[in-house]
Design a protein around this nucleic acid. Structure first.
Lengths: 192, 192
DNA sequence: GTCTATACAACGATAGAC
DNA sequence: GTCTATCGTTGTATAGAC
């Protein structure tokens, strides 16, 4: 740890996320990243061939986590259990990475980069709604699933809710998702 | 009607919306707009001082409509009636302008332009959630309102739902919103 | 392997001629 | 109202120093 050498890539990614958060992805130039790191634009270009590659790399850990949530959910037998698992996992992911998610969802640059880059055709962005609605999908369920996904993600990153503590946000987001998808309410924390 | 003169501005706006839809706002350059119109970039700059001004002008009718929905809702006395009115109005607006809404919500350029431009401090983007949660807002309601707003808007513009007919989408979006905000289900079209 | 220097076409934007 | 010409900056790219 504390390796001061060879981790320019890591510092770059951290710096980039900070700048993305402040100015948005398209509002952040390679020059700004380079200046913040104290190097040249070309040095940035050495580590990543393209600006898109930077946005993908920034997004990658969260998307990989989401992907593995979907994998584990697929192993469950009952559809209801799958939905519960994905809902909880997604909410947890969103709450833990509020800032990242806000950048994600509000910027087409990242959205497209993620959509394009991830595991080929069996893409996370298509697996997610598919898993939530299940094989027996009517229109109402499909719409509800899309409202739930987009809503939970964007509400989690919303500036209006930054003041809310993680536990509250997590509980209420999960609650909203379950209500939309017709899952029963949680008993354990019902009176909180 | 069919005024062939002086309406370069209108043609420009229509052209811009078309290009925005196809390539996104940031993916559309002033050059592309100019070329599509058969004029120069500088000619475009005569009609709009800035690219942001174009995106604002493209978005303006829908935002004005939304603003007037909020005005009319404020005139209602019961909070439940206000929520119902805003929900219905918003869903209708979203469904009628699916394409526009998709561009809106997926592009920070437009999002910021709209946020910045509209009626000063008493901004539509802050009035909307405020009206939905009402004065007696607990955390659960606030989260639910944000999930509902973001979800309905983005789901309405989602590519996965473009095939759905307007009536179905309208009904199911409104249904999702009412469920999230604790409003009773509609009786009239309940069996559809 | 890691970086600097330099270049390039395209971008948003401006000034001024017709 | 539209043009040409130009500005600074962007993303991208290559050559070459260490």
């Amino acid at each position: 740890m504390t390796a001061t050498k060879g981790d320019t890539r890591v510092r770059l990614l951290e710096t980039a996320l900070g700048l993305f958060t402040e100015h948005g992805v398209e509002g952040t130039s390679l020059q700004m990243i380079a200046d913040a790191l104290g190097v040249t634009k070309a040095a940035v270009y050495y580590h990543f061939k393209t600006k898109d590659e930077i946005t993908e790399a920034v997004a990658e850990p969260a998307v990989a986590e989401l992907s593995s949530i979907l994998d584990r959910a697929e192993a469950l037998r009952r559809h209801g259990a799958q939905v519960d698992y994905v809902l909880d996992g997604l909410v947890d992911l969103v709450v833990r990475n509020r800032v990242l998610v806000a950048v994600f969802c509000s910027d087409p640059g990242i959205a497209r980069a993620v959509e394009r880059s991830l595991h080929g055709e069996e893409n996370v962005m298509t697996r997610l709604p598919a898993m939530l609605v299940g094989p027996d999908a009517d229109d109402a369920t499909r719409v509800a699933a899309h409202v739930a996904l987009a809503g939970m993600a964007m509400a989690g990153g919303s500036p209006a809710l930054v003041g809310m503590d993680d536990e509250s946000l997590r509980r209420h987001l999960a609650d909203a998702g379950r209500r939309l998808l017709g899952r029963p309410r949680r008993r354990d924390q019902a009176l909180a």
